[in-house]
C-alpha cells in the first residue's frame, strides 16, 4: 500500500513536469502514449513486486508452520529420550544387581571343592563370617537344600567360634532333613541340643530330631524326645508343639 501511494505520487509529479512542455515538444498523442507506457511499465513492476512479497510472505508462513511443527516433534522426541534414558538407567542398575547376586551365589558354589585348602589358612576377614552365613542362609531360602547343607557344614568347620554356630547347626540339620539325609540331620540336631541347651533353638532342634526319628521309624525315640521338650522347655511354643504331637501319636495308636 505504501509502494502504491508512492508510485501514484511519482506519476502525478511526472505529469506536472511534463505538462508545460507538452505543446512545444510533443504531440498530445505521443505524450499520452508515453504516459500510458510508463504506467504500464510501473504497473508491471508493482505486480512483480507484489508477487515477490506474496511469495516471501507465503514462504515465511510455511516456515513458521514448519518451525511450530518441528518444535512439537522435538518436544515429543525429547520426552521419549527422557523416558528411554530413565528406563535404560533403571534396567542397567537392575542388571547389575542381578549380576552381583548371581556372582555371590556362584562364588559359594565354586569355593565348595576348595574346602580342604581353605582349612589350611583361614582368611582373617571380619566380614567374611556373617557373609558366609548369609550366603548359606540365602541358599536355604532359595530352596537349594543340598548346596545350603554343604554351605552350613563348611561354615561350622570354618568358624568354630562363631556365634552363629547353633544357628548354623540348626539350618544345616534342616537342609539335611530336606535332602532326606536323616541320619546327618539327627546328628546335627543332637549336637545343637548337647552343646547349646540354653540356645533358643535347642527345643526346636529336639522337635527336628523327633521328626527325623519319626521318618526313620523310631516312634519310641521320637516320643521320648518330645517328652524331653515338654519337660525341659516348659512355656515355650516348642513345648506346645511337642504336646500336640504327642497327643497325635497317642490317638494314632
Amino acid at each position: 500500500m505504501q509502494a502504491r501511494n508512492g508510485v501514484a505520487a511519482a506519476l502525478a509529479a511526472l505529469f506536472l513536469i511534463a505538462a508545460p512542455a507538452r505543446a512545444a515538444l510533443f504531440d498530445d498523442d505521443i505524450a499520452r502514449q508515453r504516459i500510458e507506457d510508463l504506467r504500464a511499465d510501473t504497473k508491471a513492476r508493482i505486480d512483480a513486486l507484489t508477487q515477490k512479497l506474496e511469495q516471501s510472505q507465503r514462504m515465511q508462513g510455511d516456515l513458521g508452520n514448519q518451525i511450530e511443527s518441528l518444535r512439537g516433534e522435538i518436544a515429543k522426541l525429547r520426552g521419549q529420550v527422557e523416558v528411554l534414558t530413565y528406563e535404560l538407567e533403571a534396567a542397567t542398575k537392575r542388571q547389575k544387581d542381578f549380576y552381583l547376586d548371581l556372582d555371590n551365589r556362584l562364588r559359594v558354589l565354586e569355593t565348595q571343592p576348595a574346602k580342604p585348602a581353605a582349612a589350611a589358612e583361614p582368611a582373617v576377614d571380619p566380614a567374611a563370617e556373617p557373609r558366609d552365613y548369609e550366603a548359606a542362609l540365602n541358599l536355604l531360602k532359595g530352596g537349594k537344600y543340598p548346596e545350603a547343607q554343604v554351605a552350613f557344614e563348611n561354615f561350622i568347620k570354618a568358624w568354630p567360634k562363631s556365634n552363629f554356630q547353633p544357628a548354623a547347626h540348626y539350618w544345616a540339620a534342616s537342609a539335611a532333613f530336606q535332602t532326606k539325609a536323616y541320619s546327618r540331620a539327627a546328628e546335627l540336631y543332637q549336637q545343637l541340643y548337647a552343646q547349646w541347651p540354653a540356645d533358643v533353638r535347642a527345643p526346636e532342634a529336639l522337635i527336628g530330631l523327633a521328626n527325623t526319628q519319626q521318618v526313620q521309624g523310631d516312634a519310641k525315640g521320637a516320643k521320648k524326645t518330645l517328652e524331653t521338650v515338654v519337660a525341659q522347655y516348659p512355656g515355650t511354643s516348642s513345648a506346645d508343639t511337642a504336646r500336640q504331637r504327642l497327643k497325635q501319636m497317642a490317638s494314632k495308636k
Binding site: M1, R4, N5, T50, L53, E54, Q57, R58, G61, D62, G64, N65, Q66, E68, S69, L70, G72, A75, K76
Partner: peptide, 26 residues
C-alpha cells in the same frame, strides 16, 4: 497430541494482500 498450526498460509497471504490493497487509501 500437539499438531502444528496448519493454517493454509498461502491462501491467507493472498487474502491479506488483496484486502490490503482494496481498503488501503480510505
Amino acid at each position: 497430541m500437539r499438531t502444528p498450526t496448519k493454517i493454509t498460509l498461502a491462501a491467507l497471504t493472498l487474502a491479506v494482500l488483496a484486502g490490503c490493497s482494496s481498503t488501503g487509501p480510505e
